[in-house]
Design a protein around this nucleic acid. Structure first.
Lengths: 232, 232
DNA sequence: GTGCAAAATTGCACATAGTGTAAGAAAATG
DNA sequence: CATTTTCTTACACTATGTGCAATTTTGCAC
């Protein structure tokens, strides 16, 4: 679909230039997720089958299952990619940086237009259908595990130190929970609004959530009167 | 199985004495979960069918589906009950108590022998099988939503105050994450050890996790040397 | 291009999941 | 006992997910 320069896609970024096979697979994968999202949009959750997706993507039912284990998994793959961008950002942060600061920077990646755009509609469609949300939960959980691993590796850089697994897991889970909370609130407010103003709101929500986490949630649940931004 | 005193089970606790129908349904439900757990233990995850469970529980396959939507759901129902005990404890706390203190008290309920015992083995069996964990995640997520609702009701008691949804959701998610982290670490260490010493460890893990949360995770990931309790 | 090996797609068969429906069994009601 | 309500069951049917072998496509050497 895009400009298919033969083999040198972006030399230097990846050690393995994408072969034709890999590009075909990526295209098929994309066709599947596109078809699944289109069907979710047009027919609603639970009102289409794997065969529908396969037909729409121009492949056989069997091939669909070579790529994804279920309809949910196909849709959740978008969320995986979405969260993976935050994880990569986390890994990119310097090791000596306070970990909550790294988490804040990583979560802000979720407010990137290119990152959140493919997810926005999916989220709105999913939040109305609890059935679909199972695989989504799995995606968030998977990201939590990845954060735990990344954080463990970071702390392991300090030689001879004993890593507190409880601290790691509680922290990673809380960070992800804050990201999820910010996304939920954002979607609940304005839906999938991709305008710069809306994305700015999302960024602020992510920052505020991490702020609450960093301050130990010391009682800001109520605000007697909200002088600024009481449009809610 | 147990002593079936006719109708007066525990007068005063429930306004509706359990009729014969309700007791039969409860017994069937229990038989299903028992059978599912037994099969999980003996055959391993993914190596038995709904029909196996139904046969083992002495019911038809169709009746199984009248009670649970899937094998996973049957097993996850135990986790639902487990987490529900913590939720009830949270609701029982006084409204003016600091919310993290309420959370701490609620999570400590998870270390109650009567509460955690039915879950212990399930957790160990589940952690080895990522397939089963989807419904478990759903159970934790469901509990998070319940906590959000309970906390919202608590704060709504203050008249005229505007509730910060982000604070609520981030807090509830983090609290649950801390509970989950403590459980994970506990199981990873000693498995399903129900001894008083082990349960004491679990209690301390839960307290420490909430402690981390309350102090904003201000850097206790490493400990240069652990003078006490370095048996890990 | 030709030929060959590796890999992907596909069709087919099959076991299992999950659901609608109607008949039958059990329990509550009078 | 008769009736009504609720639960269980059998049956039929669609859909999911997987193993397997045939077929097609791609990569690579010549």
């Amino acid at each position: 679909m895009q400009s298919d320069s033969l083999e040198s896609g972006t030399p230097g970024t990846s050690p393995t230039p994408p072969s034709r096979r890999e590009k075909n697979k990526a295209a098929t994968r994309q066709a599947i997720t596109d078809a699944a999202l289109a069907l979710l949009r047009s027919k609603g959750a639970g009102n289409f089958t794997v065969e529908d997706i396969a037909d729409s993507a121009g492949i056989s039912r069997r091939t669909f299952f070579n790529y994804f284990g279920s309809t949910d998994a196909a849709l959740a793959s978008m969320t995986y990619g979405f969260l993976d961008s935050a994880l990569q950002q986390f890994r990119r942060r310097p090791s000596r940086e306070p970990i909550l600061e790294s988490a804040r920077a990583a979560l802000l990646e979720l407010a990137d237009p290119m990152t959140v755009a493919p997810l926005a509609e999916l989220f709105t469609l999913i939040q109305q259908n609890p059935q679909l949300s199972r695989s989504e939960l799995e995606a968030w959980d998977h990201c939590t595990e990845q954060i735990i691993t990344a954080a463990r590796e970071r702390f392991a850089a300090a030689p001879g130190a004993v890593i507190d697994e409880l601290y790691l897991r509680a922290l990673a889970g809380s960070v992800i929970s804050c990201g999820k909370a910010a996304m939920d609130v954002w979607f609940a407010r304005g839906g999938a609004d991709m305008s710069p103003a809306s994305l700015s709101v999302l960024r602020q929500l992510l920052i505020d959530a991490i702020g609450h986490l960093g301050s130990g949630f010391d009682g800001h649940a109520l605000s007697e009167s909200t002088p600024l931004e009481d449009r809610h």
